[in-house]
Structure formats: C-alpha cells, structure tokens
Computed example of a mutant assay.
Amino acid sequence: MIRLQSKPIASLAEARKQLQTAIGVEFGTLPPYLYALYSIPPGQNLQAAERIKSVAMQEMIHMCLACNILNAIGGEPALKPPKYPGPLPGDIGPPGGKPLKIRLYPFSKEAMAQGMAIEEPMDGPIDFPDKPMLKAGKSETVTIGEFYTRLDAYLATLPASDWHAGRNQIDDNQYFMGQLFDVNGYPDAHKAIEQIISEGEGASNSPLDFQQEVAHFYRFEEVFRNQVLTKDPNPKGYAWTGTLGVDWKAVYPAIIDPASHDFSHDPPAARAAQKACDAAFSRMVRELQLAVTGHEGHLGLAVRAMFDLRMAAHVAFTTPLADPKKVAGPSFVYKPGAWK
C-alpha cells in the first residue's frame, strides 16, 4: 500500500501548496510509465503497450487539469522533474515507512508492480476471483485519491471571490479533445478532481472509470497478470480471464535508471543518443511549463516534443553500450537550454 504524506488544509495558501504537490506527482509518473512503454520494440506486446500508453496520456491530462485548478485559485504551477531513482513529491510510500524510490524500469513485472503501487485505490484493490489481496486500514498518510478528495473538500468552501475565471487555462483546442476543460469555479474543479480520481483507481466498488474504461491500477494489473479483466456474473461483477499475450522477453535489453549510469565509457553513438533524449525531454518540459502558465499554443509543442522523445528513445534503445548486450533508454534528465 503506497500513500502520500498529507496535512489538513486550513488556508488558500496551503491548498495551492497541495495542488502543486499533486501536479508534481502527476508529472513525476510520466517518465517511469514512458520508459516502460518505449522499451517495448515496435510490433511487440501490442495490448500491453496500448494500456501503458493510455495511462501515460491520461496522466498528462490530469497534470493539466490540476494546473487549471491551481491557476483558477491564483497559484503559479511549476513543473520540476524528479530525479530517478528518487521519491515523488509528497513522499509517496508505505505508511510509517521511507518514501518509495521511483525507478525507471524497462517493460517488466517490476515496472507494472510499481505502477500498481502508485495508482492503488483508496480502499485497496477490489478482490476479484483468483486474486486475493489485503485492504489497508486508515493512517495519517493517504492514497492519491484520498489526497484529491481532501483538496476537493477544501475547495468547496472557497468563496467565489477566490476563483479567477479564465486565468491561464489550458483547453482542448489542440489536443485531448473532450478531456481538458477550463476551471472557472468550484463546479469545474470538482468535475476535474472526480475525473482524475476515477481514471486513476476506478469508481466506487468498480474497476471502471467515469468513461466506463478500466482504471489505471487495473490496466497495470492486467499487464502484470497477463490477463483481461472482464464482466462476469459472480458477486464482484468481474473476473480475470484470457490473456494479453504478454512476452516479458520481448523488450529491449535496457538498463534500469540510466541517470545513474556513467556513459563516459560508452561508444559515441550511445552518448549521442542520450544527448538527443535529454534535449527532447528538456524541450517537452519547457513547452509544458509555458503551456500551464498561460502561453497559448505551447501544449501542442509539448506533445510534439513528446513524439520527438519517443523517436530519440527508439534510437537509444537500439544503440549498444560498452556492454554490447545492453542498451539505455532516456534518463529523463532536464537540462536547461539542451533543446537549442
């Protein structure tokens, strides 16, 4: 059971601080999810790749919605890429334990288990047939869903004068049609928070989100189990059946946590591949930062930079290191000016 450190919200300043933490968590999940996704060779593990990709895209949407809420209450979103390995904002981790060290794993059971840990539902995973799991009790720490629920409860108390309609909002006129929207007051913020919680962990007593699609936690579990969660006439309503055709060996032989690797002894091509990855990621961060602070048109440039990152990652994953049996994907290190 992985949870965030959370404090009661007693002021607008504290709400802004908590929203910044939420933004950091949403943004911080992108690199580990993308590293696992990009490490799958073209044409391999297609169903697994589609599930991971859908989660990553929704995490970007969640980040933008959280930024819209923060902008609407007068805050200034700041995108600060975490270091990997390392903790996410909010010190996500087990109750009473050390913060979880988020790592960049290539496509593997370890990568899926980490995703499940991050996305775990508020009341624990639903115990579908053939998968007994323990539910966690209450503690001073909270799941991501509970974290957002507390934010929602405080935002509901704010007077209309604390909301700033139209301030630095990101809409869906470029990408993510129907999923991004302006936050101009509490009703919009509540809608955004409900979407974030539902897509991450599912609706109450259901593995499905508000769009009737499998929530993030269960998408990762499908891949981890190599099974499909389908409707079933049992009391839980769903059961594990079939297969996704997962082949854990059909993955590039990538190292874990490339930021911890010393590339100085690797071939020039491997170093050049890392430089290209750093440039694309840094450009993506820069464009996202501009997008969430009111610069129109930059969300599209950020999405384009993400595509560039995927192309650079493909080169990196197919370029041998000094050990010819190993490769390294993008380290997701932000370097100011690297995009020039």
Rank of each mutant, 00 (worst) to 15 (best):
D182I: 06
M177K: 14
P132K: 03
F181S: 03
Q179C: 07
G137V: 05
Q174L: 15
R150P: 05
Y186C: 02
F181D: 00
G166N: 15
Y148S: 10
I196M: 08
Y148I: 03
D182K: 15
Y154Q: 07
L155M: 12
P129E: 03
Q195P: 01
E146K: 08
D130R: 12
F181Q: 00
I170T: 12
D171T: 13
S161L: 10
Q169D: 06
Q174V: 14
V142Q: 12
N184V: 06
G178N: 03
A189P: 10
H164T: 08
G137W: 08
L180M: 04
Q179M: 15
V142D: 05
G137S: 07
G178M: 02
G145C: 05
N168W: 12
P132F: 01
F147E: 07
S161P: 08
I126K: 01
A156W: 01
K138R: 12
A153T: 07
F181L: 03
T141D: 10
D127Y: 06
L134P: 11
T149A: 15
T157N: 09
E146C: 09
R150F: 11
D162Y: 04
V142K: 14
H164C: 05
N184S: 09
G137D: 02
G185H: 12
T141S: 12
N168I: 00
P132D: 06
G137L: 04
D127T: 12
N173Y: 03
I197N: 03
P132I: 02
F147T: 05
A160M: 07
V183I: 15
F176W: 15
A192G: 02
A165E: 14
A189S: 12
D152N: 14
E146N: 09
D152M: 14
D127A: 10
I197Y: 00
F128S: 07
L151H: 05
N168R: 13
L158P: 11
G185A: 15
M177Y: 15
S139W: 07
G178W: 13
I170H: 04
R167T: 04
I126A: 06
K131D: 13
G145L: 01
L151W: 04
T141F: 04
I197H: 02
Y148V: 04
G185V: 05
E140V: 04
F147W: 07
I126Y: 03
L155S: 05
D172F: 09
Y154L: 06
D171R: 09
K191G: 03
A153I: 00
F176S: 11
M133Y: 14
T149R: 13
R150S: 13
Q174D: 14
K135I: 11
G137M: 04
Q195G: 01
A192C: 00
Y175H: 13
T143V: 02
T143R: 01
Q195E: 08
I197T: 03
A153Q: 11
Q195K: 07
K191I: 06
E194R: 05
D162L: 09
F128G: 08
W163Q: 09
G178S: 07
R167C: 02
E146P: 09
D127W: 01
G166T: 08
I126T: 00
I170R: 02
W163H: 06
